[in-house]
Amino acid sequence: MTEPTESAREPRATILVVDDDDGVRRISRRMLERSGYHVLEAATGPEALDVAASHEGAIDLMVVDVLMPGMTGNQASHHLRDLRPGVPILCISGHPENEVVRYGIAGHGTAFLQKPFTFEQLAGAVQALIGAH
C-alpha cells in the first residue's frame, strides 16, 4: 500500500486568511495549501466574519493583517472569537511588532509574524499555534 499523495490527503486544519493586500493573501494561501491546510480567504474584517459565520466546518486558525482599512485585525479577531471561541490568531504586519502592539494584538492564543515572511516562517508559526491549541 502506498502513501496517499498530498492532494489525496485530508487537510490537517482550516485556516482563515484575512488581508486587504490581494498579493499577500494569494501567496499566503498558496503557502498554506502547500502545507496541506484548507484555506478560506477574506479581504476585510467584515468579510472575514461573514466567511466565519457561513463556514460549516471548524476554523482552526485565523491569519490576519493587523492594520486594515475599516476594521483592524484586532477588531476582526475579537469578533471572530465571539463567533468561534478559542480560535488562535496569527497577526501579520509590515510594521514592527512594537508599533502594532498598541492595536491590541497581545493575548492568549495570539502570535505575531513580521511581513515579508518566508514559507518556513509562516509554516512554523501556523504549526506552533495549531499544535498548541
Results as ranks from 00 to 15, higher is better:
residue 91 C to N: 11
residue 41 E to Y: 00
residue 97 E to M: 12
residue 68 M to L: 09
residue 113 L to R: 14
residue 75 Q to I: 13
residue 79 H to Y: 00
residue 16 L to N: 10
residue 73 G to K: 09
residue 15 I to V: 07
residue 35 S to T: 14
residue 75 Q to S: 15
residue 133 H to G: 11
residue 74 N to E: 13
residue 52 A to V: 00
residue 103 Y to G: 04
residue 60 D to T: 00
residue 126 V to D: 01
residue 122 L to D: 13
residue 85 P to E: 04
residue 4 P to H: 10
residue 102 R to K: 15
residue 3 E to V: 15
residue 26 R to L: 14
residue 8 A to L: 13
residue 68 M to K: 14
residue 107 G to C: 04
residue 30 R to F: 14
residue 70 G to R: 11
residue 12 R to E: 04
residue 92 I to V: 15
residue 113 L to D: 08
residue 125 A to C: 01
residue 100 V to P: 11
residue 43 A to S: 05
residue 100 V to A: 14
residue 16 L to G: 06
residue 11 P to R: 07
residue 120 E to A: 15
residue 2 T to N: 07
residue 34 R to K: 00
residue 58 A to Y: 02
residue 127 Q to N: 05
residue 1 M to L: 09
residue 78 H to P: 00
residue 34 R to G: 11
residue 127 Q to M: 11
residue 15 I to H: 10
residue 94 G to R: 08
residue 81 R to M: 09
residue 41 E to W: 02
residue 121 Q to A: 14
residue 110 T to M: 12
residue 8 A to Q: 14
residue 57 G to M: 01
residue 24 V to T: 11
residue 98 N to T: 07
residue 16 L to W: 02
residue 66 V to W: 12
residue 57 G to R: 12
residue 132 A to R: 14
residue 53 A to D: 03
residue 25 R to E: 09
residue 83 L to A: 07
residue 22 D to L: 13
